[in-house]
Simulated assay, not measured.
Amino acid sequence: MSLKPTDPALYVKNADPRLIVADMDGTLLDDSGEVPEELWELLDVMKARGIAFAPASGRQYFRLEHMFHDASDGMPFICENGAFVVRDGVEVSSCSLPREAVVRSVHAVRNSTSDAAVVIAGKKMGYFDRTEPQFGAEVHKYYRRSALVEEILDYDDDVNKVAIYTFGDARAGLYHDLEGQLDGCSVVVSAPHWVDVMHPEANKGTAVRALQRELGVTREQTVGFGDYFNDAEMLEASGMSFAMANAAEGLAQGARFIAPSNSEQGVITVLRNLLGL
């Protein structure tokens, strides 16, 4: 049952948050794609109280670390939709995609009917081979370290995922083109124009559980915020799970609570209540 976001008593009573995990686009970030200014003060409070805050995103580690640079000391990062988890520059967990799966994914995209561009998301950088401005802007948004290459399969790196940008609707087009073609891989719609091909064990929920073990935190002490289909496992792994009011249809069914939308700074509102501020 969805609970009203305007009544903190529903989720504050007996709460003991030790780990906060928050998706970025459509969840923590505002409608301009910026981190709310109010978060920086809350990060200081959480750090003083021994509460870990982990951004959870499809973004590359280097992009996330740059976004939170001034507060990144001790901060864990759930990167590449859970395929790579890093804390203080040290890998906590990873689920690399085998080369044969990468090759199959690239060939499947090339043979699909959708107009799509590929980023091979390695641990060292993202590799891409198309130069359309629209696609380039998306690459820059998610990858701080990237390289334009002649042949995208000529990489020397461990691969977190194959990220595929479609110029059309990801769920209605490219996802269906790839569905059933990539046995042994997880194919996930991660944004309206993005589909990720990942190791079958890689998702944000797996990443959260790895962090819980690393930090000695229980599911009941974990707070999760998300708005899209790739956040479902993360919400399930969080005892206090919040779907945003602007979440994709159906996501709220798997969450305990509803937070105000990202445009209303719903994550900030909930955190202030949880922290008693």
Rank of each mutant, 00 (worst) to 15 (best):
H176M: 13
R87I: 02
R87P: 00
R104V: 11
Y127W: 13
T113D: 14
P76H: 04
N160P: 00
F84D: 03
A71I: 05
F84L: 10
H69D: 15
D158N: 10
V109R: 12
K123T: 13
A170P: 03
G82C: 06
V106I: 12
V86Q: 00
R144T: 03
I120K: 00
L174E: 02
A170G: 05
G74T: 02
A117H: 06
Y142L: 02
E132H: 05
D70I: 00
G136L: 15
V92P: 03
P98I: 09
M67F: 02
V162I: 14
D157F: 04
I164T: 08
D177I: 07
H140P: 01
M75H: 01
E91K: 13
A147Y: 13
D156V: 13
R144C: 09
R144L: 15
S72G: 08
R145M: 07
L148C: 02
P98A: 09
S112P: 12
T113Q: 14
C95V: 10
S105C: 14
D70E: 14
S93V: 11
G89L: 07
V119N: 01
H107T: 13
E138M: 12
S96G: 03
C95G: 03
N81E: 06
Y61P: 01
I120C: 00
K124T: 13
V85R: 04
Q181H: 15
E80W: 00
R87D: 00
D154I: 09
K124H: 13
I78M: 04
C95D: 11
R87H: 05
R144I: 03
R110P: 07
H66K: 15
G126P: 04
N160E: 10
G74K: 02
R59I: 07
S112N: 14
M125R: 15
F77W: 05
Q60A: 04
F68W: 09
S94R: 15
L174C: 03
E100D: 14
F167M: 09
L148I: 12
V85H: 01
A108S: 13
D177W: 05
G89N: 10
D129W: 05
A121K: 08
A116Q: 04
F77A: 07
F167W: 11
Q181G: 12
D156N: 13
P76W: 00
S105P: 06
N160S: 12
V90C: 03
P133H: 04
E179N: 08
